[in-house]
Every structure is written in C-alpha cells, then in structure tokens.
Design a protein around this nucleic acid. Sequence first.
DNA 1: ATAAAGTAGTTTATAATATAAACCAAAATT
DNA 2: AATTTTGGTTTATATTATAAACTACTTTAT
Lengths: 94, 94
Amino acid sequence: MLKKLDPLLHSELRLAIMSLLISVNRADFKYLKEETESTAGNLSVQLTKLEEAGYIIVKKGFKGKMPQTVCSITKKGTEAFEKYVNDLKGYLNL
Amino acid sequence: MLKKLDPLLHSELRLAIMSLLISVNRADFKYLKEETESTAGNLSVQLTKLEEAGYIIVKKGFKGKMPQTVCSITKKGTEAFEKYVNDLKGYLNL
DNA sequence: ATAAAGTAGTTTATAATATAAACCAAAATT
DNA sequence: AATTTTGGTTTATATTATAAACTACTTTAT
C-alpha cells in the first residue's frame, strides 16, 4: 500500500529544485538560490547529489565575465519525479 | 511560492503514521509496525516525537496480559497534516 | 518447574542527511 | 589599491533516521 519514497527526492530542498526545473526547464544557480531561499552551500551540495544521481545536468560556464552554473532536468530525473509524486499520493489521501 | 514544509511531517515514517491514523482513527503499535514495515525501535522514536508535538495521543494499557500501545490523532495533528498536504502540493505541480 | 522462544516495546549507539560556517577566486566598486 | 560583492565549493557541525542492544514480561515446550 504505502510505497517506499525515493530518498533522493524526499528532501525539501532537492524536491524544490526538481519542481522548479520541471516547470522552467533550465535555471541557473542564482535563480535556484533565490526561489528556494536556500544558502549557497546547501544548494551546491544538493545539486551535486542530484547530478550524481543523473537527475539533472549541471553545466558550468560564464555569463559575461562571471561564472554561471546552469542546471536542467534529465529524462531520468523527470521520470523519478513523476514516480515520487505518485508514490507520495498514497500517503496524502489525494 | 514554495512554502516551508513542517519538518515533523516531512519524514517518511512519521507521515505514514499520520496518514494511517487519519484514516483509521485508532491504531495500536503492532498494526502501525506492520503497515509501515518499520522496525519497532524506529516506530517507538517517531511516535514519541509526534506525541511530544501534540499531533497524536499515545495510551499504554494491556490487551489480555500483554502490553498494548494505542495511538490516535489529535485535532492539532489533523490540522498539521492538512496544512502539510496543501503546502506540499506547491512542490508537486498538482 | 524451568528453560527456551516469542511479544511488545524502550533506550542507546551509529550511520546518514541537512545545514551552516568558513573559505576561495575573480569581478566590481569606492 | 583596498574593500566589497558575486558565485560558488569545501569542511565542520547539528539534526535526523535507523539499527542494535536491552528490558520486562508471556507463552510454549521439556
């Protein structure tokens, strides 16, 4: 009945990141930091975890002269997110 | 936009406990352990946390000669659960 | 009647996770 | 040219979850 939730997604910040990336497709570090109201350190750590899991792609480049980190969601990430949402529904009586 | 999630409820086991108690109203330790497939130790710890928060009531008694712990959800717990579900919806694109 | 095994938990220790603090390199500002 | 700001990473610490060990008692088998 109650499905085991993907521990990588059952984290407030990582879930927020994925939720944002699902709707906007691409987002840079600054944007994610603002929208999630997280600290840079925490965001950095969680992006790395999502990247290592293959849920997102992280590209480092420059915007003008300033470094810029751009993130996007992968197919695997989208599927994992959708599965998580469905599994979670079992807990929420939706 | 993205609301801060109640950390007490954003835990797989505690959420499962609350979800079960919402639907059945009363449940004993054994039933919760079976349904959640948790270890007794983890369940014990999480029930105490929910009790301390005033989200559930834990009553210790006996069933025949064996000890029995019966749990039920409080009004505060029900309200917290409902708020959590609503806040979470913002993350899930539902 | 007693030893062994099972029930219903709690407590304590350890592993995993999240968060914050400290740091770094370069750019922009004063 | 010193200071502050930007855009991060790394490391340390606090929190949380999980597992292991223990308690107290009951039931069953010998």
